[in-house]
Simulated assay, not measured.
Amino acid sequence: MMEERYPYKPKLLAAIVTVVFFGVLAGFMGFFSLDNDQGLVLNGIIHFSRMGATIFYWVITFVLAAFSVLGLLLIFKSLTSKGELIITDQYVRAPKSGISKKIITVPFNDVEKVSVQEVKGTVFFKIIHRKGKLTIVSSVLPKREDFEHVKKHILAHVRC
């Protein structure tokens, strides 16, 4: 029986860029929030007082900081995860998501539907099966060619 294995975890460089990018933006917005002394008008429709604008800026700061913290989680998962995607002639086995510890095994006989969706260069290969859904994400595999190979292999073995 044929079996191929691919590392399936977040990319370290992308996680580092996420932390730096959102961290810098959060720092900038935090400084702006501390130094705010005027109101804010958004698109001429929404008017904030000085206090309302400051609260708005702090909310944006915390949202950006949360994305930076998410990047830290991705760095941790990238360094510690042993996740892998396995394909054989009978099934595909992968973590439920790029950061999940839960492993999903989908026998090709259980596949009911497959679909492909692309969002800003990242391709999502969705496999709907009897027990749920497994989504294989191109950005979590080492190379785009690996993703294309996995996708073609699965499509060649499913009957939907």
Rank of each mutant, 00 (worst) to 15 (best):
G27F: 11
P95N: 10
F108T: 04
I46P: 01
N43R: 13
I104M: 07
L79S: 09
G44M: 05
I75M: 06
S100E: 10
D110A: 12
P95R: 12
I45H: 14
L74F: 15
L72Q: 10
T61A: 10
L40V: 05
T88K: 01
D110N: 08
K101R: 14
Y91T: 03
L79M: 13
Q38V: 01
H47M: 05
V111G: 03
V63P: 09
S81G: 10
G30H: 08
S78E: 10
L85A: 13
R50F: 00
D35E: 12
T54P: 04
L79V: 04
L42D: 02
A66D: 06
K82G: 15
F67D: 05
N36S: 11
K82E: 15
G27V: 02
S33R: 01
G52T: 13
A53P: 07
L85V: 12
T54E: 08
A94T: 05
R50C: 00
A53S: 15
N43W: 03
S97P: 09
Y57P: 00
I60M: 15
F76T: 13
I45F: 08
A65G: 14
E84H: 12
T54G: 10
P95F: 12
L74K: 10
R50Y: 00
P107K: 12
I45A: 13
F56Y: 15
K101N: 15
L73S: 07
V92P: 06
S68C: 04
Q38Y: 03
A65S: 09
S33P: 00
G83R: 03
N43T: 02
D89S: 12
Y91S: 11
V41Q: 10
D89N: 13
W58Y: 11
I60P: 01
G52C: 03
A53W: 04
I46A: 08
I46S: 13
R93L: 02
F32H: 09
L74E: 14
T54W: 00
V59H: 00
G52H: 08
W58G: 04
F76R: 15
S100R: 08
N43A: 12
Q38N: 11
S49E: 07
G39C: 04
I45L: 15
I103Y: 05
N36T: 05
